[in-house]
Amino acid sequence: MPSLKDVKTKIGGVKKTAQITKAMNMVASARLRGAQDKMEAFRPYTAKFNEAMSNLSSRSSSGGNFPLMEKRDVKTVELVVVTSDRGLCGSFNSNIGKLAERTMREYEAQGKPVSFVCVGKKGFQYLKKTEKVRKVYRDIMGTFQMFNAREIATEVSQNFLAGGSDKVEIIFSEFRSVAVQRPTGHDFLPVQPSEATEGESTAAKISGEYIYEPSVEEIMDVLQPLYLNVMIYHAMLEVGASEHAARMTAMDNATNACKDIISKLTILYNKARQAAITAELMDIVGGAEALK
């Protein structure tokens, strides 16, 4: 049986840990709110953007030749993996890493070599053992801005245009709710004309003839890189929110685990105390008995 003092020290230590995890939980929940606000602010921009994109691509069916939309024979694939920079958020980052690895294996099984572009330190740490990481963007997830997204999008699309990859997918974690974050993969390059689901409503709305300045094709040329920025930025926002949500859950669990340990240790402590008292009493009684 551990001594009274040992148990007491241990209880103190676990209490401190619980304090820290609780504080981290609160910080994460405050940050989550910030991240959600950011997502909220970004939503109208994406909505409008997609609308305009589908509007334009329905007009340019005349077959404009856009290098970013060119569908080539897929020989090499690049995966853009967006994760957080920091740990202590449960299985959040490794879930994204696992999805990336699985996707890599699928492509390699088809004989298509894969390279990675990691956004966020944790993804790199997970994937560096594959030795296929082409580029890493570290320490930008905390305070990322649009220009970070632009930098990444430019780098990836230039590599695509130079023939370094024939297909690019982006892997990140979708923020469903505070409790649910799901790792997902999306096609990134070549640029797909917008989804058919939105197409109907917008096509009806824009029946009127537009004046385009410059031509539809030239606008598309400008819009496509912007579209990529938007996609990267969107992924970063989702990951940002997911990270904080995952950390909240992880830290909540940790705090609860601490409480369990504390109550167990307290029982142990009381038992040890009682045993000590009993032993002392026995001594006293024994001593008094001997004096008679």
């Binding site: 305009a52 509007n55 334009l56 824009i206 009127g208 003839e209 537009y210 004046i211 385009y212 300045e213 410059p214 030239e218 606008i219 400008v222 819009l223």
Partner: peptide
């Protein structure tokens, strides 16, 4: 500031899209 120079838009302008 549009692609082809500055432009002004008043009410009931025709549908228009510019960089």
């Amino acid at each position: 500031p549009g692609y082809g120079g500055d432009f002004g838009v008043l009410a009931n302008h025709a549908p228009f899209l510019s960089t």
